[in-house]
Nucleic acid binder design. Structure first.
Lengths: 261, 261
DNA sequence: GAGTGGTCTAGACCACGCC
DNA sequence: GCGTGGTCTAGACCACTCA
C-alpha cells in the first residue's frame, strides 16, 4: 500500500518496493512479477501509475516486459571480460581474438563485416587521425555477436594514403587481423591511447544492438600510434554495457613517470 | 502532427521529432522547449502522451525539466579526462591529483573525506583483496566535487594487518597520498588491474551524486599489487558518466588481434 | 494570479501469448 | 477467448516560478 504522506510520488514508491523485492531475491531473476492488475490492487493505485513504476524499472534494466505473458525479473546476462593487457605481451602464435575472449567466458563469439570502403571521417575520428574534418578515410565496420546476439559495433578508420591499394581497403577477412596487415605495409606500432565514455544508446545504436531505449553503452575510442607517433588507426566501438567488463593492467612505479600514463 | 499509420507509439514519435530538433540545433542547448500545452496542440495528443515523450528524453539526458519555468535542452556538462595514473592518488607534485586533473579541464576540483575506519568488506572487494567475505577491512571514503558538484564516490580498502596502526586508519589528510603512506609501510608497488563497468546509478548513488534516476555511472574497481603480487589496495569508485572520460595509454609491441580490445 | 511542469485517475482499446 | 502488457485519452490537482 502506498503511503500518501510520503513526499515521493506514488509511482516511485511502487518502483522502490519492487526494486527492494528484486534486490532481496524475494523476486529472483527469471521470476514473473504479479500482473499489473494485481499490483494495482496491492498498492491501491491506478493502472497508469503501475505502468509508470514498471517503466522506471525497465529503464534501469531490472525487469523486462513480455506482452501477453507478464513482466519478468531480468536474468543478468553474462558479461565478457575484455582485457587489453595482451597488447603488451611479446611474441605468441595465437593472439586472443573475439572468439577466444568469448570462449573464456563460456559463450560463442562471432563477427560480421558489415562495410568496407571509404567514408567521411566523423570529427572525433578526424581529430585523432590527424586529417581534416569530413575528409575521406578508409573504414571497416564490423558487428560482434555473443551467442548470436549483437553486442558490439566496431568501426576502424585508417588514413587513406597509408592503406591505399592494400587488402585493408577490400572486403573480406584479413589473415592475422588488420594490425598484421598494417605491419605488412611497414607500420611499426608503438602505443595506443584508449578513451572510454559511457552513455545511453542512441535510437540507431539501440536498434542495431537490439537494445531497449535507455540502455547503457560504452563508447570507446582507441588511437594507435606508430614508432613516429603518427596515428595509424582509430577504432571506434559501441559496446553494450551489461555484456562487457573492460579491463586494463598497468604498471605502478614508485617514482612518478613523466607525462600522462 | 502524429502519423497514426506509423507503427511507432505516438509518444515515441513525439520524442523522435524533438530529438531530431535538438540534434539539428533547431533546439540548441539551453533553449526552452515549447510548453507542454503547446506541444499537445502541435502534435494533437493528450497531455499524458507529451509528458511521456518528455520523460523519455529526460531519461536520455537530452532535456531537463524545471517546474514553474519550462523544459530546457540540456547544456552538455564539461567532462574531466581521467588518465589512468590519476587513481594512484599521489598528492606529490609529479602525480596527477584530482585538483590538477580538474584544473586541466578548466574546473575547480575539491574533495571531502566522508569516512575513515573499518567496515565489512563487500564481496567484490573481499575477493580482490584476498580476504574472507564480510571480514573487517580498513576503508577510506571520499567524495569528489567539480565546481562544487559531487561527481565521484571513491572508496579505498586496505587489508587490516597491512595498515593497522598507520596514519591510513586515521582521519585526515595523508601527506603524499595513500600511496606514499603505503610506501612508508614498506610496500613496493608493482602493477594494478582496472575493471570498468557502466550501468544506471542505484537510487542511493543517485541521491549522493545529485543525479536524476536513470543516470549513467562508471563503476570502477582498481586492485593494486605489490612486488609479491599481493593485493594491497582495492579502490572502488562510482563516477558520473557525463562528467568523466576515462583514458589509458598502453604500449603495443606486436600485431594484436581483430577485436577493439 | 497566470503559466508551468509533474503527478494521478478511471476507463478505454490494441496486439499478443496461451489454452 | 481470456488474460497480459502497452498505449492513449480527457480531465484534474499540486507545487513551483515569475511577473
Amino acid at each position: 500500500m502506498i503511503n500518501r504522506n510520503d513526499p515521493r510520488p506514488a509511482y516511485q514508491q511502487v518502483a522502490a518496493t519492487l526494486r527492494d523485492r528484486i534486490h532481496s531475491d524475494e523476486l529472483a531473476p527469471g521470476v514473473k512479477l504479479p500482473s499489473t492488475q494485481e499490483l494495482e490492487a496491492e498498492f491501491a493505485v491506478s493502472p497508469t501509475t503501475v505502468q509508470r513504476a514498471l517503466q522506471t524499472l525497465k529503464g534501469e534494466g531490472l525487469v523486462v516486459g513480455r506482452v501477453g505473458t507478464g513482466v519478468y525479473v531480468r536474468e543478468q546476462p553474462r558479461a565478457v571480460l575484455l582485457a587489453s593487457t595482451y597488447l603488451t605481451q611479446g611474441e605468441g602464435e595465437a593472439w586472443p581474438t573475439w572468439t577466444s575472449v568469448a570462449r573464456d567466458a563460456g559463450m560463442a563469439g562471432t563477427q560480421e563485416v558489415t562495410q568496407v570502403g571509404t567514408a567521411s571521417a566523423p570529427s572525433a575520428v578526424a581529430n585523432r587521425l590527424g586529417v581534416d574534418g569530413g575528409s575521406e578515410v578508409v573504414v571497416r565496420r564490423r558487428t560482434m555477436f555473443l551467442d548470436g546476439q549483437p553486442v558490439q559495433l566496431a568501426d576502424s578508420y585508417y588514413p587513406r594514403d597509408l592503406v591505399e591499394g592494400s587488402p585493408i581497403t577490400r572486403p573480406g577477412r584479413l589473415p592475422g587481423g588488420t594490425q598484421a596487415a598494417l605491419e605488412r605495409l611497414g607500420v611499426r606500432f608503438k602505443d595506443a591511447e584508449d578513451e572510454v565514455r559511457a552513455r545511453v544508446a542512441t535510437p540507431d545504436e539501440a536498434a542495431r544492438l537490439h537494445l531497449a531505449t535507455g540502455a547503457v553503452v560504452f563508447d570507446l575510442l582507441r588511437t594507435t600510434f606508430d614508432a613516429n607517433d603518427r596515428p595509424v588507426e582509430v577504432q571506434h566501438a559501441i559496446l553494450t554495457a551489461d555484456r562487457h567488463i573492460l579491463s586494463w593492467r598497468l604498471p605502478v612505479t614508485a617514482a612518478p613517470t613523466s607525462g600522462p600514463m
